[in-house]
Computed example of a mutant assay.
Amino acid sequence: MKSLLRIWLLVAVPYLVLAQVDGNSKVTESADVASIRALRLQSNQAIEGRNLQKFGETMLPDIQVTRGSGSHVSGRDSVLASVAPQFKDPNFLGYVRTTERIDISTSAPLAAEHGHWVGRFRKPDGIQTITGTYLSMWRKTDTGWKIRSELFISLSCTGSEDCGK
């Protein structure tokens, strides 16, 4: 029962808090926001399934990513090449990005997604958990929304001596 409540709190509460409420107290959301949320879910599922092709489908070819450590990766092919070893590593337990807010631009085909992320890794001395916040820039294209850039900031690390390295 506790795990069901935890899942509901992680999934439903942020959605209900961040969605707009119309005059009839019905939760509504723009098609653009719903699309970006669905694409984020697809990206998270691709990480969970260790599917590089699906993971790359949400990105523009010229994506720019700044990782939580501060390192920078340019281009979808480079991003995919950089995560491929993690996808093959049985000690990599995954990343989950949780959307907190999506702002759709009124002046350009852009959107800003704000959220928090968690990365987990099996280490000899326990499960290392790294957490932080992120900001993603999405661009609306002829084929739908795609990620143009992402900035991840690591804010905490627990569970392993490797956190201090």
Rank of each mutant, 00 (worst) to 15 (best):
M1C: 06
S3A: 11
L4S: 11
R6E: 14
W8H: 11
W8G: 10
L9N: 13
L10G: 09
V11E: 15
V11I: 13
V13C: 07
P14K: 02
L16N: 08
L18R: 15
Q20C: 05
Q20L: 06
N24L: 06
N24V: 01
S25H: 11
S25K: 14
S25T: 05
T28S: 04
T28Q: 09
E29H: 08
S30V: 01
S30Y: 01
A31W: 00
D32H: 08
V33H: 03
A34S: 13
I36H: 03
I36N: 02
I36M: 04
R37C: 01
R37T: 02
A38P: 00
L39H: 07
L41W: 11
Q42S: 12
E48G: 07
G49E: 14
R50M: 06
R50S: 08
N51C: 05
Q53R: 12
G56E: 00
T58K: 09
M59Y: 07
D62F: 00
Q64R: 12
Q64H: 14
G68K: 11
S69N: 13
S71A: 13
H72Q: 08
H72C: 01
V73L: 09
S74V: 08
S74Y: 07
R76H: 01
L80K: 11
V83L: 15
P85V: 03
P85E: 07
P85L: 08
F87K: 13
F87A: 12
K88G: 06
L93Q: 14
G94K: 04
Y95A: 09
Y95D: 10
R97V: 01
T98L: 01
T99A: 11
T99C: 09
E100T: 11
R101D: 11
R101V: 06
I104T: 05
S105V: 02
S105Q: 06
T106K: 12
S107E: 15
S107M: 11
S107C: 06
A108N: 11
L110M: 08
L110G: 00
L110V: 00
A111N: 01
H114C: 03
G115P: 03
G115E: 00
H116I: 01
H116K: 11
W117C: 00
V118M: 14
F121I: 10
F121P: 01
R122T: 12
R122A: 15
P124Q: 03
G126N: 05
G126I: 02
T133M: 06
L135Q: 06
L135K: 04
L135V: 09
S136T: 01
R139Q: 00
T141R: 07
D142T: 13
T143P: 00
T143A: 07
R148Y: 08
S149D: 03
S149V: 00
S149Y: 02
E150C: 01
L151D: 05
L151R: 10
S154R: 14
S154P: 04
S156A: 15
S156K: 15
S156E: 14
S156P: 07
C157T: 07
T158K: 15
T158Y: 12
T158L: 12
G159D: 08
E161C: 03
E161Q: 14
C163A: 05
G164P: 00
